[in-house]
């Protein structure tokens, strides 16, 4: 047990001493996860609205597909994206492999079904009277979309937080697509995996603490937003 406690003490020391290697992994993780959640929300929130709001042929089947993709294994996404962006792949010329951009693209694919599916559920659970009320008040189509998303903002924010949690905590994609390159594509999770393998618990624990702190901060901000929106 002593070595674990020692690891926690050393980890806190690394964080507060401003260890460059530790903070580099944190910065890459935050950069990749923020970009991927932003991209996923830009694409996923309107797509989720359409899926939850409109009734069109194939809607139920599409909904089932996105619900199934909620449990998409990260290594499967990593493998598929790797196949596309490796030098032999159809998108090889984009040179995304072993870059933060590559991680962002793959993480977006991973969390997009979460945003779409949970946003669709949020929209489906909206009061049926909302649409008619907005129409009678003269709202145009895009105003109906924006107001409906606003009415469901707590549920959409919960979807965003869930998706962000998945992005920042995944290992498979960052490892396969990023390549765990020190100073460049090493993320919190790949660094924990690597350092733990090497027996360097201090850095692993330091990064683990940061990961927990991020998770706590994100959830705390959601709770505050919920209170503010009341």
């Amino acid at each position: 047990m002593d070595y674990l406690l020692e690891g926690v003490q050393q980890g806190i020391g690394l964080l507060f001493s401003g260890d460059i290697e530790t903070w580099s992994a944190i910065a890459v993780s935050l950069q990749a996860s923020m970009l991927s959640i932003t991209t996923a929300l830009i694409i996923g929130a309107p797509a989720g609205f359409v899926l939850g709001y409109y009734d069109f042929p194939g809607r139920k089947q599409l909904r089932a597909v996105f619900d199934t993709l909620l449990a998409l294994p990260t290594v499967v996404v990593g493998l598929l994206v790797y196949g596309f962006i490796s030098s032999r792949g159809p998108l090889g010329t984009m040179e995304l492999l072993f870059t933060v951009s590559g991680i962002v693209a793959a993480q977006t694919i991973l969390i997009l079904p979460i945003v779409i599916s949970l946003t669709a559920s949020a929209i489906e659970s909206l009061d049926m009277r909302l649409r008619n009320t907005l129409i009678t008040l003269g709202a145009s189509r895009h105003q109906i979309v924006l107001t409906s998303l606003n009415e469901a903002k707590i549920a959409v924010m919960t979807a965003a937080v869930t998706a962000y949690g998945r992005a920042i905590s995944e290992v498979g994609i960052s490892m396969m697509i990023g390549g765990n390159i020190k100073w460049h594509t090493r993320t919190i999770t790949t660094a924990i995996a690597l350092e733990s393998g090497k027996g360097n618990f201090a850095m692993g624990i330091a990064l683990g603490l940061v990961l927990l702190a991020i998770a706590f901060a994100v959830n705390a901000s959601l709770i505050i937003l919920k209170r503010l929106s009341k």
Partner: peptide, 12 residues
Amino acid sequence: HHRVTLLLQDHY
């Protein structure tokens, strides 16, 4: 819808 408006019985 800018010229006519309806207050629904089941208002929201």
